[in-house]
Design a protein around this nucleic acid. Sequence first.
DNA 1: TATTGAAATAACCATATCGTTATATTACTA
DNA 2: TAGTAATATAACGATATGGTTATTTCAATA
Lengths: 107, 107
Amino acid sequence: MDLHQLADCLKALGDPTRLKIIALLNLRDFCVCELIPIFNISQPAVSKHLNRLKTSGLVTENRRGQWVFYSLNRKKLEEIGYGLNHLPDFSTEIEELDKQGLLVKCD
Amino acid sequence: MDLHQLADCLKALGDPTRLKIIALLNLRDFCVCELIPIFNISQPAVSKHLNRLKTSGLVTENRRGQWVFYSLNRKKLEEIGYGLNHLPDFSTEIEELDKQGLLVKCD
DNA sequence: TATTGAAATAACCATATCGTTATATTACTA
DNA sequence: TAGTAATATAACGATATGGTTATTTCAATA
C-alpha cells in the first residue's frame, strides 16, 4: 500500500460515523437497515458511508436475499496499522533534492 | 483516546501532503522553509498543514532562532495504531437498543 | 404479475477543506 | 533601530464532503 492509498484509507476512517461503523463491524456483520437506527442519519447517508468504506477496501458487502450485509476487512485494517508504523522512507528523495541544490539549509 | 479524537487524528493523517510530512518528520525534524520546496505548495499552505497536525497532537513545534522546527509526536502515532487495533466495544449499546426494540431483525 | 421492502443512486444544499495572495508578526542583523 | 527573512494569520475562491429528499433498482412474496 503506497502513501496515497494509505492516506485514502485514513481519510475514510477519519469520520466519526464511519469509524463507529468499523467498530460495529468488528463485533459482527451488519446490514444497512440495522445500522440506520444506530446513527441518527438517513438510509442513503448510511449507504454512502458504507460505499466510501467499500471503495477503500475496508469493508465488503454480500447480499443475503433482500438484505445487504457488510463485513469488516480485518486484513486491510491491519495493513493500515502496519503502514502507520512503517511509513515510507523519503531519505533518497531528500538527498536528491539536496544534490540539486533545492534543499534549504537552516542553521 | 475516544472515538472522536481518534477520528480527528485519522482525518489529519488522511491527506497525502500531511501524511508525507509525518513520514518526513519520522526521519528528522524539519523547519517550515525546508518543507516548502519538497511540496509544490505555498508557504502558508505548508504552515496550515503543520498547524492541522499540531492541533491533533501529532507534531510539536519549537522555535530555534528565526526558524520553527517541527517534530513528530511518536507516542501519539503509536496511540493511533493502538486505537485502530483496539476499537471501542459497542456491544452494550447494541444490547440497549435491542431492549428498547429499536434494533431491526434481518433474518 | 403486482406489490412490498431494502438498498443504491440522483439531485441538491450547507459547510468544510485546501489551495491561493496579501498582510502581520517575530527574530535576527547591519 | 531600520531592514530582512521566516512563519503565521486573514481573506478569499473552487472543490469536496456529508447531510437531506426523491427516485430507481433489485429481490421476495401475495
